[in-house]
Nucleic acid binder design. Structure first.
Lengths: 220, 220
DNA sequence: CGACATCTTGATAGCTTTCAACTCGGGTGG
DNA sequence: CCACCCGAGTTGAAAGCTATCAAGATGTCG
């Protein structure tokens, strides 16, 4: 699974996020400089049932965290972008699946002495916050509201507030499995946003956001 | 807001949960014995915008944690039962509302020196776990599945697995706002479960669970 | 450049919400 | 002690939204 310990260049023909790691080195900065583990597009990082191991930090690429039910339904809990930390779980075995959506490089953070506590708490609270926002979207928003919330979330995390360029390397199915919708509904909502001039679609995986005011409307 | 520092008896004409605190004194045991702050049914504990203060532990009663959107829609994130700890947030101001559903007694835990870190991390990860399960129900289950998941969750947390007696002091509206459903849909699903012999309804707020196997079916 | 996965769009079915009327239960006051 | 009252719960009918099924268009990658 660990193909290479050599850091790979973020440059590739695939769509990637800008590497925010450089600006985002707050809590776990001191481990910077370690070699990266790299994953190809679609490759699994860990699966439910695996022994819980290290914690990872995304250097470049995109990771999805999810569960699969017995009937095949899938719920995606998070997309992790450069700078994000994931893999922290309570149990001895992973409860989730994690895999790379695009070519991805990860820093491996082996939980150390125990002065990581402060950082882990911060990470856990951040994940909790995101889960709670996610919950609000799934519980109290219709399809359009969920997609708008998703676009705003991804855009802010990519800090594309400036230029309005939003990269969405994940598939429509991924987005649907994150939002509790079908891929068709996601596609229809995006078409509607396109038709109403809220976004412009450069390609299926690249949007330009034209009307932040409309996207953001309705948040309490 | 702090009506009384005198512990009140859990005995009352209202429906209450059995006090699990005695068996649940793991992490924060050392603060036991402190006086309780009590709240009447429906009384607010804190509101969004309040300065983040102490952390609370439920001694008896039932607490709901929620947000309200500008149009009045409400999302309930958690019901807290005896033994649960809540009130831990990242920001300086509360992002949520908390109020007592039944008459409730709380232990006030003022974050201390900093060796609470381990415990806070455990609490945060537990809340994260619950949020993730909640997310799965909202994202990938229909109305019947959500209500079943809710009944199983509440029954397990009340440890009524033995006798199958399940107290639901919250209203149908509360349940709906937790599950992303309307109160009517919640009522209809409960009626269906009653008709199919899965539960027996002693009163609107007390169910006897007859068929655990059916309630639990379909969880991965 | 070609093949295959992904995406888009349309039509229909199914589920949940909405609106409405009625019932039930607990609490209050006569 | 009982009748009344009002909030909460139940049930019904119709509208609205999303899923499903299906076909065609577009992109991507080898």
């Amino acid at each position: 699974m660990f193909d290479s310990l050599q850091p790979m260049s973020p440059r590739s023909s695939q769509i990637t996020f800008p590497d925010r790691a450089a600006q985002d080195r707050r809590g776990l900065d001191h481990i910077a400089g370690k070699p990266l583990v790299t994953f190809r597009s679609g490759q699994k990082i860990y699966v439910a049932g695996d022994e819980t191991g290290p914690v990872y930090r995304v250097a470049y690429g995109l990771v999805r965290i999810y569960r699969i039910l017995s009937d095949g339904r899938r719920q995606i809990y998070a997309f992790h972008l450069p700078g994000d930390v994931f893999g922290l779980e309570t149990e001895a075995e992973h409860q989730f699946f994690a895999d790379a959506i695009t070519k991805t490089g990860l820093q491996v953070l082996r939980p150390g002495a125990g002065d990581d506590l402060q950082q882990f708490l911060a990470i856990a609270l951040k994940l909790l916050n995101q889960a709670q926002n996610h919950l609000l979207a799934l519980g109290r928003q219709d399809a359009v509201g969920r997609v708008r919330a998703f676009l705003v979330e991804m855009a802010e995390r990519q800090q594309s507030s400036g230029d309005g360029v939003l990269m969405l390397p994940m598939t429509r199915t991924d987005i649907g499995d994150y939002l509790g919708l079908t891929l068709e509904t996601v596609s229809r909502v995006l078409s509607k946003l396109k038709k109403t001039g809220v976004v412009r679609q450069v390609s299926p995986h690249r949007l330009d956001i034209l009307r932040w005011d409309i996207l953001r409307a309705d948040y309490d």
